[in-house]
């Protein structure tokens, strides 16, 4: 039986791992390859590396890092951050990434999803969606939650699937970094509506939160950062607890 996936997310700036609370106040938590290997050995099912470098120099460092990650990691990994063309995606594929995530660039120019899926296949492209509620509507945001777009979560997710996305990574900006749990009803609606996997991200504070989004929220995978980076919930503990709750987990 297909296992629900647990995915640590590593934010990378200028070649090192960082994680901010609500994307502010970054704090260094280690070498990206070593940290990835540690998570893989602990039972992570996949890894996500997000480049949050703002400079060209930082982006170049990241591409070199992807090559090192591919050499050192024996589970699938996804990379994202600043991918705005099919060539950007292709470079990361050649460096060894298993998937890429696109976010703001796809909101700005949705054809990017068709182009990447057409060239490299749907299994290679994850569309990440950051959204927050405004007057009861889930509004898609870009640039790490700083800008509102014209798009609405459900219609954008459906469109992304139709354009060839292989997976949706949805983060609620209302919950990200708060450790108050996930908006499970929203996840369940998204999962019922889509035929591709949905990854839940942002908001996990406890094992119960993650169990809930994988069951009530119907998510295929849960992605988290700080609870792993700061050792609050070690992956082996999390996976054993989820297994005890009857959730299908790779132990």
């Amino acid at each position: 039986m297909l296992a629900k996936r647990i995915i640590p997310c590593l934010d990378i700036k200028d070649g090192t791992t960082v994680k901010g609370i609500n994307f502010l106040g970054l704090r260094n938590v280690g070498d990206p390859v070593e940290l990835g290997q540690k998570y893989a050995a602990e039972g992570a099912d996949e890894l996500v590396y997000l480049d949050i470098s703002a400079t060209n120099e930082g982006r170049k460092t990241f591409a070199e890092l992807v090559t090192r990650i591919a050499e050192g990691i024996d589970i699938p990994f996804t990379v994202g951050g600043g991918i705005s063309s099919v060539d950007d995606a292709g470079r990361l594929l050649l460096a060894g990434a298993d998937k890429v995530t696109v976010n703001s660039a796809a909101v700005r120019r949705p054809e990017l999803v068709d182009e990447i899926a057409g060239r490299y296949g749907s299994q290679f492209i994850v569309v990440a969606i950051d959204a927050k509620t405004i007057d009861g509507q889930w509004v898609v945001t870009t640039h790490g939650g700083k800008r509102l777009s014209e798009r609405e979560l459900f219609s954008w997710a459906k469109e992304a699937q139709e354009r060839g996305a292989g997976e949706i990574l949805f983060t609620s900006m209302d919950h990200d970094g708060t450790k108050s749990g996930y908006p499970c009803e929203t996840y369940a609606r998204l999962c019922d509506m889509l035929s591709i996997p949905v990854v839940a991200s942002g908001g996990a504070g406890s094992v119960e939160d993650i169990a809930e989004v994988l069951t009530v929220g119907k998510a295929d995978a849960a992605l988290a950062a700080s609870i792993f980076h700061y050792g609050e919930i070690p992956i082996p503990v999390l996976k054993r607890e989820l297994d005890k709750k009857g959730i299908n987990i790779r132990l």
Binding site: M1, L2, A3, R5, D45, S122, Q123, G166, E167, S195, I196, P197, D220, A221, R250
Partner: peptide
């Protein structure tokens, strides 16, 4: 209700 592609860890 199983999704295609079959993607992830399976036994």
């Amino acid at each position: 209700g199983l999704k295609v592609p079959h993607m992830g860890w399976d036994t």
